[in-house]
């Protein structure tokens, strides 16, 4: 069984200061990290590998910034790492390229993705399932393979967010399954990613063949496949926080309920 996990490097928010008043994002330290939900997706794949045995393939778009995400994944236990030579694709192009990658690799039974990207909000899971004609299971905090089916657990309080009214007791978690092949989207509440053994980091980084590169041509992608749909028109900012606003007890109760 082969599991594909796409990884997206994102700008580490720890090095960022958002100034709402100036309407600007200041980047003090330009560090990149793997999108947190994607890392949980990788952990879910590695757990299936540990329990049932599977080949775990990670893929990221490049050429820049992606090497660390891919090599870290290799150190954590991914068997192959693929760098797709398309710089910062949008959701649509990502989906085209990842679907083409699955066809290129053949024999991909399960794709586990992070449910959304912290830096763009893109969520490729449903679209990728549609493009591959795979089943889709979203909102997973746990994922396993039972026979020929992917089975997930979804937290009761995660589905339907952000409409959660927390004063109510959280509904029970539910299990869902779908026959393979399938795409599963893992949330940031998925299992805590493992730390790699330090020696594996050194080995992965010193292995010149740790990352395989594929060009759009290798994947048979045409120019129209590489045409982005999402056009960034800039940034906007939440209103500045206003402190000291007086409220009634009812207001407070309702604010607590809605946050």
């Amino acid at each position: 069984m082969n599991i594909l996990v796409p990884l997206k490097p994102i700008l580490d928010p720890a090095g960022m200061i958002v100034n709402r008043k100036a309407g600007r994002v200041f980047v003090n330290r330009e560090n990149y990290m793997t999108n947190p939900a994607d890392k949980r997706a990788l952990e879910a794949a590695l757990r299936i590998k540990d329990e049932a045995g599977a080949g775990v393939i990670v893929a990221a778009f490049g050429p820049d910034r992606s090497a660390d995400s891919l090599l870290e994944a290799r150190a954590m236990g991914a068997d192959r790492a693929i760098l797709i030579d398309i710089p910062s694709p949008d959701e649509t192009v990502s989906v085209h390229a990842l679907a083409a990658l699955c066809h290129h690799l053949g024999q991909v039974d399960l794709v586990i993705v992070g449910d959304s990207a912290l830096d763009t909000g893109a969520s490729i899971g449903p679209r990728l399932a549609e493009a591959l004609d795979f089943a889709f299971l979203g909102g997973a905090v746990q994922c396993s393979v039972e026979g020929n089916a992917a089975r997930i657990i979804r937290r009761g309080d995660s589905r339907g967010r952000p409409d959660r009214a927390s004063a109510r007791p959280a509904p029970a978690a539910t299990a869902h399954e779908a026959d393979l092949p399938a795409v599963v989207a893992v949330t940031r509440e998925g299992a805590q990613p493992r730390y790699p053994h330090g020696g594996n980091i050194i080995t992965a980084y010193r292995d010149a063949n740790a990352i395989e590169s594929l060009s759009p041509a290798d994947l048979g992608l045409s120019d129209s496949d590489l045409q982005p749909v999402a056009i960034e028109r800039g940034q906007s900012f939440p209103p500045e926080r206003e402190f000291g606003k007086q409220a009634s007890l009812d207001d407070i109760a309702s604010v607590i309920g809605h946050r």
Partner: peptide, 20 residues
């Protein structure tokens, strides 16, 4: 339509338009 959607847990919003 240009849509504002939160990124980085709502730290700021991206304004995105769609070309399809």
């Amino acid at each position: 339509i240009v849509a504002s959607h939160p990124v980085y847990d709502g730290a700021y919003y991206l304004d995105t338009a769609l070309a399809a």
